[in-house]
């Protein structure tokens, strides 16, 4: 069983190794002492405080923490949607973000949004080919060929001419991940992509994401509230403290890949889950108590 799975992955890997081999090594993120203060002159919300984190190239990092602790803030800074107040971020040793550096989003760091941001006015296929075509990296025909190949890997081939509004949320998110991956980004940023999905759709989406990860090995920054999901998918679980957000602890997930839902009941998995749960619970409690104080 396990061997079969391995073989399949290896075969697929060699299929696309041609254009990916030189890139799989890249995508290391260095987040050094990042502080983010919203509205420094006015309300002065410290969203992140002295936050440091090293993400290796090709590492799958899941970020958990209480609501409002700054997970999305950090994602927005990495993506280039927002600036930071102190600290630096390096991507493959090149300065990406620092105070005074103009934030610039780009196809090397593609975001998959919480509520989905497939263009509802474009068909699935037109959505997927959008990136490479406007960047003039591929002709439309080339892009269509590659998009079809990628879509069919995820069982999305028949829906290429459908508008996103007609798809279930699980399919939309998978299409969006394909739309991100076709750009060959260094880093994939996912903000609670599977939130609010029913458990069946969710586990199907997990499988799809894991399969893609095993093929492409991109660096992934994955925000979630679901601890089980975080451990099941990632190499490292990062637990953030309540606001102002800092890194409270990082948990190395040493479960073998490819992952399989049967691992959810192994002793090692449960042990990791306990560790993470204690930390998250404590932070959530702090956030809760602070909330009560603020209300009082």
């Amino acid at each position: 069983m396990r061997n079969n799975g391995d073989e399949k992955v290896i075969k697929e890997n060699t299929n696309i190794a041609l254009d990916n081999s030189h890139i799989t090594k890249k995508g290391a993120l260095s987040i050094c002492n990042v502080t983010k203060i919203y509205d420094p002159e006015g309300v002065h919300v410290i969203a992140l405080e002295d936050c440091s984190l090293d993400i290796k190239a090709g590492e799958f990092v899941a970020v958990v923490g209480p609501s409002g602790c700054g997970k999305t803030t950090l994602l927005n800074i990495i993506a280039g949607f927002d600036s930071l107040t102190h600290g630096e971020i390096y991507l493959d040793n090149e300065l990406l973000a620092a105070p005074g550096v103009k934030p610039k989003p780009g196809p090397d760091r593609v975001v998959v949004f919480q509520h989905g941001a497939l263009f509802p006015w474009k068909t699935v296929l037109d959505n997927v080919i959008y990136g490479p075509v406007i960047q003039k990296k591929m002709s439309r025909d080339e892009a269509i060929e590659i998009a079809r190949d990628k879509l069919s890997r995820l069982g999305l081939k028949e829906i290429e001419n459908v508008y996103p509004g007609q798809l279930s949320s699980g399919m939309q998110r998978r299409v969006e991940i394909v739309r991100a991956l076709i750009n060959n980004p260094l880093v994939l940023l996912l903000d609670e992509p599977f939130r609010g999905m029913d458990s069946v759709t969710k586990s199907a989406s997990h499988e799809a994401l894991l399969e893609l990860y095993d093929i492409f090995h991109k660096t992934i920054y994955f925000i979630t509230h679901d601890l089980e999901e975080a451990i099941f998918l990632s190499d490292t679980v990062v637990v953030m403290t309540t606001r102002p957000g800092k890194i409270r602890m990082t948990i190395k997930v040493d479960l073998p890949r490819p992952r399989d839902y049967r691992m959810l009941s192994t002793p090692r998995f449960l042990e990791l889950k306990e560790t993470a749960k204690d930390a998250v619970h404590e932070e959530a409690l702090k956030a809760f108590q602070r909330g009560e104080r603020e209300l009082a």
Binding site: V110, G116, F119, Y130, I134, R179
Partner: peptide, 23 residues
């Protein structure tokens, strides 16, 4: 999110006008 998605995918402001603002 549509503006941000377009920026991520490498759209220039002209392309944002044609592919996000108008539709």
């Amino acid at each position: 999110a549509y503006f941000r998605a377009a920026l991520c995918l490498g759209a220039s402001s002209k392309e944002i006008l044609y592919d996000v603002v108008i539709p």
